[in-house]
């Protein structure tokens, strides 16, 4: 149930979407605690059964439970009870449940909150594999801008309930600040220059000094810089404060 506005998911309003429509979606929310007494593989096999009637030639549903357990790296925990999994394992199981029906559209809501770096990297690999392998569109929300930059093909930034930016990570940084920072050393001295025409500036630099230039570094603004700049711009341009700002990344 939406609070306002219009929504269309896979061409249908979620409020009136039927079971066949539901079968094409996968949803992974934050911290699910259900089905604690089930075993990992059992639960995946059971939930997969629900998707059998919606199997098509293009999308054979459901995903084979053993294959799926391996895909999310839970093979050695396949016979463990769900309640005994660690936070990271549990989240990978949640993803497995989300994709058991081979969805065309997968929602991931802040999937890596509370992960240690290793679990985070494993999770990112998993998302990459899903996005590359199947024709699955993944929509994930995150506060972690590095994550968004790493995973997303297209990023939407929301601030105060409005989309304030929309594009690939590269486009966003370009659009926001065409400026890049150029650092180099010459005769043992460090130089820093900011330019919107960094390529031309560097060429001129070499024309002028040739081999004397060392330690050259051209750095575009990171997504985080861009984000901060955008949110700041948005907030100054608007009188009411923005209580909640977050980035939404779509892949």
């Amino acid at each position: 149930m939406r609070s306002a506005g219009q929504v269309s998911v896979l061409g249908q309003d979620p409020a009136s979407g039927g079971e066949a429509w539901r079968a094409r979606l996968g949803i992974v929310l934050q911290s699910w605690r259900d089905h604690g007494k089930w075993k990992v593989r059992e639960l995946l096999a059971h939930l997969g059964e629900y998707y059998v009637p919606y199997s098509t030639a293009r999308d054979p549903r459901p995903w084979d439970p053993d294959e799926l357990v391996a895909t999310v790296g839970l093979t050695e925990h396949a016979n463990k009870k769900v309640g005994q999994l660690s936070g990271g394992q549990r989240r990978r199981l949640d993803v497995a449940i989300g994709i058991v029906g081979r969805p065309e559209l997968l929602f991931l809501d802040e999937p890596t909150v509370g992960f240690d770096p290793e679990a985070r990297r494993e999770f990112h690999d998993l998302v990459h594999r899903l996005a590359d392998g199947d024709h699955t569109t993944i929509l994930l929300t995150t506060h972690d801008l590095d994550e968004a930059e790493k995973l997303a093909d297209r990023i939407l930034i929301l601030a105060g309930g409005k989309v304030i930016a929309n594009g690939s990570p590269d486009e966003l940084t370009r659009q926001m600040s065409g400026e890049a920072e150029i650092r180099w050393t010459r005769d043992g001295q460090r130089f820093v220059h900011t330019s919107t025409e960094s390529t031309r500036y560097v060429r001129e630099l070499f024309q002028q000094y040739g081999d004397k230039i060392g330690d050259l570094e051209v750095r575009r603004a990171s997504l985080e810089d861009t984000y901060m700049a955008m949110v700041q711009q948005f907030e100054t341009g608007q009188t009411s404060g923005t209580a909640a700002t977050f980035a939404e990344a779509a892949r």
Binding site: E19, A20, R22, A23, L25, G26, I27, L29, W32, R33, D34, H35, G36, L47, Y50, Y51, P53, Y54, I97, G101
Partner: peptide, 16 residues
């Protein structure tokens, strides 16, 4: 089970 999300899970699954 509404509180722990079991019902929501069921809702996300076709005929769940």
């Amino acid at each position: 089970e509404r509180e722990d999300g079991t019902l929501l899970r069921a809702k996300a699954i076709p005929n769940g």
